[in-house]
């Protein structure tokens, strides 16, 4: 895996992951492309995410984007979900699981892509104030 491509894949996965834009997909795509098995790629992605997310969290915390008061609730509920998810992955046909997942994220993607613009309203509200000044 020597060369520019793994560096680019690592960088892109780290950057996208830090922005909450699905760095895992980038890394899993790359790992599948170099011939690593799906379970191994999934495990590598999760392991890769631990230090990269930690770096991102520290920067995001400094930038005031992390609300620490609700994080323990998410972590506790999420830990239960992660264990259940691992058990499901071990028992259900992976291709069926993949298709369900694909439909789900496509639906969410359409919702995100075509959402109503929110910042325009804020700018419109600000305009009269700046015009007065």
């Amino acid at each position: 895996m020597n060369g520019f491509i793994p560096l680019a894949a690592g960088f892109l996965a780290g950057a996208a992951g830090a922005m909450g834009l699905g760095g895992g997909f980038v890394l899993i795509l790359y790992l599948s492309w170099v011939g690593i098995s799906a379970p191994e790629a999934r495990a590598a992605n999760l392991m890769f995410f631990i230090p990269t997310a930690l770096v991102s969290m520290l920067i995001n915390k400094r930038n005031g984007l992390i609300d620490s008061s609700v994080l323990p609730y998410a972590a506790a509920a999420g830990s239960i979900g992660a264990v259940v998810g691992l058990m499901i992955a071990d028992r259900i046909d992976p291709s069926l699981l993949g298709k369900v997942f694909a439909v789900l994220i496509t639906a969410v993607g359409i919702r995100e892509l075509f959402h109503r613009r929110t910042t325009k309203k804020k700018q419109a509200k600000k305009k009269p104030a700046s015009a007065q000044a």
């Binding site: 699905g22 895992g24 997909f25 992605n45 998410a74 509920a77 979900g81 998810g85 992955a89 699981l97």
Partner: peptide
């Protein structure tokens, strides 16, 4: 807090099952 817990639960399920996609 319930919203954070729901996000964690859904994200955990996907991350556990697929190894990625929890954020989606």
């Amino acid at each position: 807090k319930p919203q954070a817990a729901a996000a964690g639960l859904a994200g955990g399920l996907l991350n556990g099952a697929f190894g990625s996609g929890g954020g989606s």
